[in-house]
Amino acid sequence: MKHNLSIETAGLTLEKASKALIMIHGRGGSARDTLSLSQYLQVDDFALLAPQATNHTWYPHSFIAPVDQNEPWLSSAIELIDEAAQRALGAGIPNDNIYFFGFSQGACLSLEYLARNAQKYGGAVAIIGGVIGETINSNHYKGDFQQTPIFLGTSHPDFHVPLERVNETRDILRDMNADVTVEVYENAGHAILQEEINWANKHIFK
C-alpha cells in the first residue's frame, strides 16, 4: 500500500511565511488533530504542513519490527514527508527555516526522515519515538545536521518505545552533528506533556 498524497495546511500560506513546520501525527491520529496542537506552540509566523497517513497509520507494525514488514508503507510515508518539505523549499523557505514536530509513530517517522536527510534544519521535536527498524541500519543515514537542535522527549517506561532506542537515536543524531536534548519523564504515559511543549517553545520555536 502507498499513501495518498494528502497534506493539510494551516497558519500562514507558504508564500507569506518565512518558516515552515511539518507536523506528523501518530497512529490513529490525523493531520487535523496534529495541526490543532499548533495553538500551544510559538508558531504564529509559520506555515504549517501536516501530511495525512492513509487509514491513519504510517506503517502497520511496530517501529522496531523488521523494516521489510513495514514496507511499502514506510517508504511511501517518507516520500510524503519529503513532499511536504519540497513544497516549503519550492516556496522559497530554506532548509534552515524548516522545522518538524512528531508524536509517537509520527515521531519515529520524523526521526527516520531526518536521519536519512541530515542537513541544517530549523529544529525538530520528536515526542516518544526513535529511528525505525528491528536493528539500526546506519547505511541509511547520511549528511550533517550542522548543530540543528533536536528534542527527544519520552516517558519511561513506554509500552511502544523502549528507552534504549531513544538513547540509540540520540547517539546517531549526535554523531551526525545534531544538537540533541533528551528528556525522560518517569511514568508519564504515552502523551505529549506541557513540559515538552514549554521546552520546545523556549529552545526551538523561539
Score class of each variant (00 low, 15 high):
Gly129Asp: 10
Val43Asp: 00
Pro66Met: 08
Leu37Val: 11
Arg87His: 03
Gly92Trp: 06
Trp73Asn: 10
Gly28Ile: 11
Asp171Ile: 09
Ile22His: 00
Pro162Met: 03
Val182Ser: 05
Glu71Phe: 06
Gly106Ala: 06
Ala65Thr: 14
Leu109His: 02
His56Trp: 11
Pro94His: 08
Phe63Gly: 03
Gly11Trp: 03
Ser36Gln: 13
His156Tyr: 13
Gln119Asp: 03
Thr34Cys: 06
Ala191Ile: 15
Ser36Glu: 13
Ile128Gln: 14
Leu193Cys: 04
Ser18Arg: 15
Ile81Tyr: 01
Pro60Ala: 10
Gln69Tyr: 13
Thr13Ala: 10
Ala17Ile: 11
Ala118Leu: 07
Ala178Leu: 02
Leu74Arg: 06
Tyr185Ser: 09
Asp45Leu: 07
Trp73Tyr: 15
Ser36Asn: 13
Thr13Glu: 12
Leu109Phe: 03
Gly106Tyr: 07
Ser75Pro: 00
Asp44Gly: 14
Gln194Arg: 15
Gly102Tyr: 06
Lys2Val: 14
Leu80Gln: 07
Glu71Met: 08
Pro149Thr: 05
Gln52Arg: 10
Arg32Val: 15
Gly92Met: 09
Gln52Leu: 04
Ile24Arg: 01
Ser110Ile: 09
Pro51Asn: 09
Leu74Cys: 01
Phe103Leu: 12
Leu21Thr: 01
Val131Ala: 01
Lys206Gly: 12
Ala50Met: 08
Phe101Thr: 04
Leu35Lys: 01
His3Gly: 11
Gly92Ala: 10
Ala88Asn: 08
Leu41Val: 04
Gln105Asp: 12
Asp44Gln: 14
Gly28Leu: 10
Leu74Val: 03
Asp158Tyr: 05
Ala10Asp: 12
Ile78Ser: 00
Tyr113Arg: 07
Gln105Glu: 14
Leu49Ile: 07
Val125Gly: 00
Ile204Asp: 00
Leu163Gln: 09
Gln147Glu: 09
Arg87Ile: 02
Thr13Val: 10
Glu186Asp: 11
Glu134Ile: 10
Ala118His: 03
Ile192Phe: 01
Ser110Phe: 05
Asp82Val: 08
Ile150Arg: 09
His203Val: 00
Val67Asp: 01
Ala77His: 06
Ile81Asn: 01
Gly130Cys: 14
His61Trp: 12
Tyr40Pro: 01
Arg165Asp: 08
Gln39Trp: 09
Gly26Cys: 04
Ile197Glu: 00
Thr34Met: 15
Pro72Met: 04
Ala88Glu: 03
Ala85Thr: 10
Lys16Met: 10
Glu134Ala: 15
Ile64Pro: 03
Tyr99Lys: 08
Asn187Glu: 14
Thr54Asn: 05
Asn137Lys: 12
Glu164Asn: 12
Val184Asp: 06
Val180Ala: 03
Asn187Ser: 14
Gly29Val: 11
His61Val: 13
Asp68Thr: 15
Gly122Asn: 04
Asn117Ser: 05
Ser138Pro: 00
Tyr99Arg: 02
Leu152Asn: 05
Leu21Cys: 08
Ile150Leu: 07
Glu15Asp: 13
Glu8Asn: 13
Gly106Asp: 07
Ala115Gly: 05
Trp58Arg: 06
Ala47Gly: 04
Gly102Met: 09
Gly92Tyr: 06
Glu196Phe: 10
Thr9Phe: 08
Gln39Tyr: 08
Glu15Leu: 14
Gly90Gln: 07
Asp45Met: 07
His61Cys: 13
Trp199Met: 01
Ala47Asn: 05
Gly130Thr: 12
